[in-house]
Computed example of a mutant assay.
Amino acid sequence: MIIDYLKIEFEHEVESTRKLLNAVPEKDLGYQPSEISWTMGELAQHIATIYHWYVGTITQDVYDIATDSLERGDTNDIKATLALFENNVEKARAALNTLTEEKLQQNWTMKVGDKVVLGPMPRGIVARGFLFNHIYHHRGELIVYLRATGNMVPGLYGPTYEDQKVM
């Protein structure tokens, strides 16, 4: 039953992420709120990249990011980021379809080479925190970037400020 809920949430939130990434204008991809912050293009690409991590998280007991290969496009090309997102969503969806209740309870670990950076902990906890919540966190940041650059923010959970002005 939990897996069914995760799949429904995944599909709903993919639509919200798609709306948000489609709202990112090419002209503002270089916007950076501070020296230590990512640019808008880097942040958008990071969000698209998280969907790639579903595969390693769901299908491997020990996920070594150092050995994973992900080809990213230019962070100054929103079309490349959108294509990366769509490709990664398809892979994430396929991985989710292999998930079982037993797999959710099994321990999972993330490594970078020999260094453990996350876990071991139950895969279900990792799916919520490292995958789902991680995307939501960065989408919130991207909304702030859009607002700071004067761009429209799409409604993800209801009307936005701009939507209400139009109503």
Rank of each mutant, 00 (worst) to 15 (best):
Q105M: 04
L146Q: 02
R123I: 07
V153R: 06
Q106W: 07
Q106Y: 04
A148F: 10
N107H: 11
G124N: 07
F130M: 09
V166G: 09
Q164K: 14
K103S: 02
I143C: 01
V126A: 11
G140E: 12
P159S: 05
V166I: 15
T149Q: 04
F132M: 07
E141H: 14
Q164D: 11
V116W: 01
G129K: 14
K115R: 13
R147I: 14
R147Q: 08
L131I: 03
G129R: 13
L118S: 09
A127F: 13
Q106H: 09
L156V: 11
G113S: 02
Y161H: 12
R147S: 09
D114G: 02
H137G: 03
T160K: 02
H138A: 08
I135Q: 08
V144N: 10
V126N: 00
Y136S: 14
D163Y: 06
G155M: 14
L104D: 07
A127H: 08
D114Q: 07
K103E: 01
G150M: 05
I135F: 04
V112T: 11
G158W: 00
R128Q: 12
L156R: 12
H137L: 08
D114I: 01
L118Q: 06
D114K: 10
K103M: 00
R123Y: 06
V166P: 06
N107F: 12
K115G: 02
L131F: 05
A127G: 08
A127E: 10
R123P: 08
G124I: 03
G113V: 04
K111E: 05
N151R: 15
G158Q: 02
N133A: 12
Y145D: 02
E141F: 13
Y161L: 15
Y136L: 12
V153S: 04
F132I: 12
L156F: 09
P159Y: 07
L156Q: 13
Q164L: 15
P154R: 06
M152H: 15
Y161M: 14
D163I: 09
N133S: 12
Y157H: 15
V144M: 12
L146V: 05
N107P: 09
G124F: 07
L131N: 03
V126D: 01
P159H: 04
P120V: 14
T149A: 00
L146W: 03
R128N: 11
E102Q: 11
M110I: 09
H137V: 07
P159K: 09
L131Y: 00
W108K: 01
Y145G: 03
V116H: 01
G150T: 09
P122H: 06
G140W: 11
E141I: 14
G150W: 07
K103I: 00
H134Q: 02
H134M: 00
Q164A: 12
P154G: 03
Q106R: 13
L131S: 03
G129Y: 13
M121P: 06
Q106I: 08
Y136M: 11
H134P: 00
I125M: 14
I125G: 08
H138N: 05
M152L: 13
